[in-house]
């Protein structure tokens, strides 16, 4: 075969190949899919939660309560059914700060110091005599002690919840230190034990001028006991290693409350009509251990 004939033969073969190959190639392109099309976003991932228990201890605190905030010792126990869903119980078991007044309550307490119902003020020219602005019985201002005794505070909370973990990842701090983390949302019922401190003196009477004292009831009744609440929130784990994590949680406990223990509706008595829906925020910091300590690695 001459060189010319050989070149010609190759040219024809190339042309035939192209004519046959172009439609087939187009069809193949249509059918071609990326091998990563159905792949998970993260492969070979440490499944830090799947089929693992977590248990730990920490602190949880109320935020923005009207009268008393509570810093509680918190216990948390959970089991992760899969890597993205789990069940857990957080329990603030001991209120370590039963007298932690809110800033508003501090100011209020100062303002209540001038109540004419307070025995210490009953000789005050503002309460008795010709210069009196009001009388002991007529002054609707409760005493500091009575106000405090009627106000409830959170004693304990028990929060069984379902945790859904949509976000998992890792982050770096200062470009060096890195941690795996997850962010979860939670929901469930909550049980909030509202407690009181002190007892209320519900009657205030004028000094009898004509032998017949004028009395006025304070009509305050603290709202206490175990209350059912709705519990929603968000949380995160930051894993220092495969079995230890720092846990942050933010809860919103929604329940009916009358934190002041005083009349709201104007009925002159404290009853269920005075209850109002309240949002009660809590933040928690827990130190969690995950068991078993070994983790699986995803495909």
């Amino acid at each position: 075969m001459t060189k010319k004939a050989h070149t010609m033969k190759r040219g024809i073969a190339l042309l035939v190949g192209c004519l046959v190959g172009i439609p087939a190639g187009a069809q193949a392109a249509q059918e071609r899919r990326s091998p990563l099309a159905d792949a998970p976003a993260i492969r070979k991932r440490f499944e830090l939660r799947d089929k693992r228990f977590e248990l730990g201890v920490g602190l949880t605190s109320t935020v923005g309560q009207d009268f008393y905030n509570a810093l509680m010792l918190n216990l948390r126990l959970g089991f992760h059914i899969t890597d993205w869903i789990g069940i857990s119980v957080s329990a603030g078991v001991v209120n370590m700060t039963q007298n932690w007044r809110s800033a508003f309550n501090d100011q209020l307490n100062t303002a209540l110091g001038s109540s004419c119902r307070d025995p210490a003020n009953q000789g005050s020219p503002k309460c008795v005599g010709t210069t009196a602005l009001t009388s002991v019985a007529a002054d609707k201002t409760p005493t500091q002690a009575n106000a405090a005794a009627a106000e409830n505070r959170i004693g304990q909370v028990i929060l069984p919840q379902v945790d859904v973990v949509p976000f998992t990842g890792k982050f770096s701090l200062f470009g060096k230190l890195f941690m795996n983390y997850d962010v979860y949302v939670m929901a469930g019922p909550g049980f909030v034990n509202l407690v009181k401190k002190g007892s209320i003196d519900n009657s205030y009477c004028d000094t009898p001028a004509n032998g017949q004292p004028t009395c006025r009831h304070d009509n305050a009744t603290p709202y206490t006991g175990m209350k059912l609440a709705g519990n929603v929130g968000v949380g995160m784990h930051a894993f220092a290693n495969n079995y230890f994590a720092i846990n942050l949680e933010l809860h919103d406990l929604i329940f009916k409350n009358n934190a002041a223990g005083r009349d709201v509706t104007g009925s002159s008595e404290v009853n269920s009509a005075d209850l109002q829906w309240t949002n009660n925020w809590m933040v928690g910091l827990n130190f969690m251990f995950f068991l078993p300590a070994q983790v699986k690695v995803s495909h």
Binding site: R45, F167, T168, K170, F171, L173
Partner: peptide, 9 residues
């Protein structure tokens, strides 16, 4: 700090 996370993987 910066990082990344997987949303439902």
């Amino acid at each position: 700090g910066y990082g990344k996370f997987g949303l439902f993987n």
